[in-house]
């Protein structure tokens, strides 16, 4: 598994940011206008492909129902987005807000705790020598290759044995485990946390656990933010586990709730409006998080991918 191996033979590789590229700039003038035009056209066309559906969603969510079919689908009519949002939030005692809150709890809480425990484990695998270390790491690596959906059904069977299905915990607890997070944290810790630093902290009399939380964590921030983000997205997008675990509507994450509404559109036509507005609102938190944390995760991502 060369791509995932942990050899620290090339320490620091990939953590180096893009600054080394600056000398390239003068070369830019030498490229032919034809090649530059071609590149711009390709990227322009695909920008449309990626953004038009979202633009359409924004426009559609801003229309009232009579205008939805009768006006230009890619341009605004009377702008009633906020009115629509008000209706969505009021519908059935604000069940939509409940779903958003649930998603935030599952994804935010799960990713936060999950990142801390994955970071600790990866750090220990990178910085301490103990028997069984490679075995643990290889089992965890195998876990990266085990599809999460293959676990959903047995998890359901186990949780139903102890009567925990259809509870918050049945979705929250399994979401805490991120083998990929351990993998990334180990790679990153072995490359970016110097042994001398841990030794120095030891000489100062700091305990191991305290050293981790006060000194080492700081050097692992890019990797930890990356782990947090991708686990957040994975939980936010998770569908099979809540689908199979939850019956009670008030426990649904927003994806499952919108799915449930979308499958009832034929019986309750008003739901179509709510599905579209709800879909638009549900993607905004993720976009904001990605934009805010951009600086961190781009560095962390490169650390994981080049190895």
């Amino acid at each position: 598994m060369s791509t995932m191996k942990t050899d620290s033979a090339r320490p620091g590789r990939g953590i180096r940011p893009a600054q080394s590229k600056t000398p390239k700039a003068p070369l830019a003038q030498r490229e032919s206008p034809l090649a530059r035009g071609g590149a711009l056209i390709v990227m322009g066309v695909f920008t449309l492909y990626f953004l038009v559906p979202i633009w359409w969603l924004l426009v559609a969510a801003s229309k009232n129902r009579s205008q939805f079919n009768s006006t230009n689908p890619l341009w605004f009519a009377d702008f009633s987005l906020f009115e629509n949002i008000g209706n969505l939030v009021a519908y059935r005692d604000g069940v939509y807000l409940k779903w958003m809150l649930n998603s935030a709890l599952y994804a935010g809480g799960g990713a936060l705790i999950g990142t801390i425990i994955a970071g600790m484990c990866g750090y220990a695998l990178a910085k301490y020598n103990f028997p069984g270390r490679e075995l643990i790491f290889n089992v965890v690596l195998g876990g990266v290759l085990v599809p999460a959906t293959a676990l959903a059904l047995p998890l359901f069977l186990i949780f139903s044995q102890i009567s925990l299905t259809n509870t918050f915990w049945s979705v929250f607890l399994p979401s805490l485990v991120s083998p990929f997070g351990v993998y990334l944290a180990r790679i990153y810790a072995s490359a970016s946390v110097p042994d001398e630093l841990i030794e120095a902290a030891r000489l100062d009399g700091a305990g191991e656990v305290r050293t981790f939380f006060t000194v080492s964590v700081r050097m692992m921030v890019p990797a930890l933010v990356t782990v947090f983000l991708f686990q957040f997205v994975a939980i936010w997008n998770n569908f099979f586990l809540p689908l199979i675990m939850l019956r009670d509507e008030t426990l649904f994450p927003v994806t499952l709730g919108l799915y449930a509404w979308n499958s009832q559109v034929n019986q309750i036509p008003v739901l179509r409006d709510y599905v579209l507005i709800g879909a638009l609102l549900s993607i905004i938190p993720l976009i904001i998080i990605f934009l805010l944390l951009q600086r961190f995760w781009r560095n962390g991502l490169s650390a994981g991918s080049v190895k």
Binding site: P53, W56, L57, T255, L256, L258, A279, S282
Partner: peptide
């Protein structure tokens, strides 16, 4: 940006 759209939502869209 599309990566921020959950699979379920993308499929609905």
């Amino acid at each position: 940006v599309p990566y921020a759209v959950p699979g379920v939502i993308a499929a609905i869209m």
